[in-house]
């Protein structure tokens, strides 16, 4: 029997579907397309929240608020979470808000350490004075609860083994009392723990950057104001990237390439502890830093291709299914006669 057109469509082999997906993702990549995206209210809320902490700190120099940044994601979701981390950290360092960082599981630690120091280096942030990496907060429940009073006895030392009581930043910031915001960038249900322990018990404000998988789950909490804004998936990251880029252009006001290559040129780098980062920028590193500034937006162009591709696939699948059904109904009716 001759195959009908819909049979051909419905029987396309998996490898061909996969090959199509590969092509639509890779081509925009190789063509170096970069996509501007519209900015949603929930991303703007998060941006404005961090701006409000900056404004508060400007007015109250002696009682500044800090941000606790939780690296709640592991290696498997770095493509979605990394661009969020980069742009939010850049925002925090640009606004010189004191920053505390922790990670709840062991595999997240190395991810957190490299990303934190990478961005700190771009803004000449000093470890212990501008930011601290506390290290592992496992089990996270215990750490969230103890931050209600003082988290230092639980940590004993920071990630690098420095005594927590000897770090200048931690003499001021060790509980929710002077944390303006908790930012959780995540691929897990960690924000729900933050809700239960930090928000419900201590009225701590929380902002979330999540993989798109969990975003729908978190919408009720954004809408109720329990989360102060949310970055949802790669698009959320791309939106934040745009907002921070505008801010960075305003504050730094010169070409990023020039800014980075001049950053450590005329200062005495012997005072900077090289344990955290090497205080100089090579040409290759500058290029990577510039690429990083548009990582999410470059991804969005491939994302566009993939979404259109799948919508077309679904459409063809349904058309084939519809005509096949129609045909088989017709045959049954004829046979019945």
């Amino acid at each position: 029997m001759k195959k009908k057109w819909y049979d051909v469509i419905l029987q396309i082999g998996k490898p061909y579907i996969y090959l199509g997906m590969f092509i639509v993702v890779v081509v925009p990549f190789l063509a170096k397309c970069e996509m501007q995206t519209y900015e949603t209210d929930i991303s703007k809320t998060m941006y404005e929240k961090i701006e409000s902490i900056y404004k508060y700190n400007q007015k109250n120099a002696d009682s500044e608020m800090a941000i606790l940044f939780a690296f709640d994601y592991g290696p498997s979701t770095t493509p979605e979470n990394d661009p969020m981390v980069y742009s939010v950290l850049r925002h925090i360092f640009l606004r010189e808000i004191p920053l505390l960082v922790w990670a709840p599981y062991v595999p997240y630690l190395d991810i957190a350490e490299t990303r934190l120091n990478r961005i700190a280096k771009e803004y000449k942030a000093i470890y212990g004075k501008d930011y601290v990496f506390l290290g592992l907060a496992y089990p996270v429940d215990a750490y969230m609860i103890s931050t209600g009073s003082d988290f230092r006895p639980l940590f004993n030392t920071d990630y690098y083994g420095n005594d927590v009581y000897s770090i200048p930043l931690l003499s001021k910031y060790y509980s929710y009392d002077n944390l303006g915001l908790v930012v959780s960038i995540t691929s897990t249900s960690m924000p729900l723990f933050w809700l239960q322990y930090a928000n419900a018990l201590f009225d701590q404000e929380i902002s979330v950057g999540t993989t798109a998988v969990s975003a729908a789950d978190f919408y009720p909490f954004v809408s109720s104001g329990q989360f102060q804004g949310m970055l949802a998936g790669l698009k959320g990251a791309a939106e934040y990237e745009q907002m921070v880029e505008r801010l960075e252009n305003k504050i730094i006001n010169k070409d990023i390439k020039v800014y980075l290559s001049d950053l450590y040129r005329d200062i005495d780098t012997s005072q900077i502890n090289k344990k955290y980062f090497e205080p100089k920028f090579g040409a290759e590193e500058i290029q990577v830093a510039i690429n990083r500034r548009s990582q999410a937006r470059r991804g969005m162009s491939s994302q566009f291709g993939a979404h259109i591709y799948v919508i077309i696939l679904i459409l063809f699948g349904n058309l084939g299914y519809y005509f096949k059904n129609k045909e088989s109904n017709k045959t049954t009716v004829t046979k019945a006669r």
Partner: peptide, 23 residues
């Protein structure tokens, strides 16, 4: 390895959408 194994889901969801997402 972790990221790549997890990213296989991109292909599975595409194929599943084509085959199972029916009106």
């Amino acid at each position: 390895l972790d990221a790549t194994i997890f990213s296989l889901l991109a292909f599975y969801i595409t194929s599943a959408a084509f085959r199972a997402f029916k009106a």
